[in-house]
Amino acid sequence: MIAIKDLKVDLGSFMLQNINLDIRPGEYFITLGPTGAGKTVLLEAIAGLYPILEGTISVNGKDISRLSPEKRGIGIVYQDQVLFPHLSVKENIAFGLKSMKCPKREIKPKVDTMVEVLGIAHLLQRNTTTLSGGEKQKVALARALVTEPAVLLLDEPLSAMDPETREEMQRELAEMHRHLNVTIIHVTHDFEEAVALGHRVAVLNDGQIVQVGTPEDVLRQPNSEFVAHFALSRNIFPGEASNANNNGYALVDTDGIKLMTVTDLRGKVHLSLRPEDILISREPLRSTARNSFEGTITDIVDRGAVMFVTVNVPPDFVCLVTRQAFEELDLRKGVKAWVTFKASAIHVF
């Protein structure tokens, strides 16, 4: 559907090069990289807004790399939305249709359908400066989507939001993608976003794509420091959430164990748990923490003052312990240990 071959872009201080990607129709594709990796420029190059040195970009078999941006049919939504401040919400959304010389009588129904899908019909007459971050994001999405782009590019769409809005927007993005089945390339530096939304992930580092695969594969076998660092800083598991006895709790089934969590989500979810939130003990602990499992220590990473200890229950839990505690408990590979953590320490998304 969209194929990028040997793309090379000059970023001034370094080069974005050897970029090869094949993105499938309707795929939610994530490009993951640390800040300054050239993610935004990659998107702008695809959209024709940044000059490329070499390589080709084709959409549905047609080479578009020499086309001017207005002829590419590729939508872009920036991190801080950049709505046209001199136009109302309605005029913002209709801007693309008017530019593309869409017949007048077709503009209104198209705009109406799109705002219906995104649930922003009540905002149509508003001035863009009075919108909240989440509302602006939806208007920017509607503005791009109403032109029915072949590909939608999202530049860190969730980064500038507070945690609550971000989770809501994340669900909205997934919902929107399911509903419209549009092909999306979403760049981010947040692995949780990649896990929650992405069918596949490309990891970008030092101007090159170093790994492509499903989020789980990339997480399990990271070949970049960025992902490896992330893999040590979060335990992430897929799971299935179902009702627990008490309200507000959910039991999440993952790898055959049931974890108690605090969430309203049900069905297929992901769990994230920080290594520093897990206690390790040699004996079962009697405590207020709702989750406690026995496993075997399979790996130890020495980071000086702290150690990362992997306990296989399964799944594998990466736990952070201080060197002192590590030595006092006499933790070694192969010994049995208990992992204990509170239901509220688990982030469900």
């Binding site: 941006p69 872009i76 920036y78």
Partner: peptide, 27 residues
Amino acid sequence: VDVRLEKVARSLGASPWRTFFRVSLPL
């Protein structure tokens, strides 16, 4: 005027002229 406003306009199908007269100049 944020240059990305012009970029968004181009990605939405506006020619350089239209972008200038509908986005850059009014702002």
